[in-house]
Simulated assay, not measured.
Amino acid sequence: MREQCAPMSRQAEVGKVVDYMLTLGRAFSRFLTDGNICLSSNAVERELRGVAPSGKTWIFTCSDRDGERAAAMCSLIATAMLNDVDPRAWLADVTARIADHPRSRLHELLPWH
């Protein structure tokens, strides 16, 4: 890819795309070694349709910080559902255990564990 795009102008659309790809090459190719990573975001987008934002849904998010918290909660719930974990049971379990759980091991509380 580097050889092919060397003579291209970085201002050309194709040049911009190739440059972007080369910049993120390592992250982009991660799916080759991790079977949990999907090539598309279709599954995630399908899951998020159930919580699509509307004026009435988010009426009580009075600040950007509230909106970010609501988005984080939606993400955690959708992640639990995608991992075939009951979100209510998982949230109840995490809420009961998180205060005594070491910060360095918070990843152990994620739905796929």
Rank of each mutant, 00 (worst) to 15 (best):
I98Y: 03
W58Q: 01
D86F: 02
L32Y: 07
H107F: 10
N83E: 01
R65V: 08
V94C: 06
V85H: 07
Y20V: 05
S54D: 11
I98A: 12
R105A: 12
G35K: 07
N83Q: 08
Q11V: 06
A99K: 15
R2D: 06
A70Y: 01
I59M: 10
L91D: 01
S63D: 13
E3C: 05
R10T: 10
V17I: 14
L110N: 04
C74N: 13
R46F: 06
E45I: 12
I98M: 13
E45A: 09
T61K: 05
N42Q: 10
R65E: 13
G55W: 03
S63G: 09
A78I: 08
V94T: 10
S104H: 15
G55K: 12
M73R: 03
C74Q: 04
A71E: 02
P7V: 07
N83Y: 03
S54H: 07
W112T: 02
T23H: 00
L110P: 02
S9P: 00
M21H: 13
P87S: 06
T79I: 05
E3G: 09
D86N: 13
R26S: 11
F31M: 06
S9I: 00
K16G: 07
V85Y: 01
G50P: 00
I59N: 02
L110M: 15
R46V: 05
L109Q: 04
R88T: 12
G55T: 12
A6N: 11
V51E: 00
A71K: 02
L109I: 04
R65Q: 14
M1G: 15
T57N: 12
T61P: 00
R49K: 11
P53F: 09
D84F: 05
Q11H: 04
A6F: 10
W58P: 00
R26F: 12
D86P: 01
T79R: 09
L82F: 00
A72V: 12
D19W: 01
G50C: 14
P87R: 04
A99H: 13
G35M: 05
V51G: 00
S63M: 10
Q11K: 03
H107E: 15
G15W: 04
M8W: 09
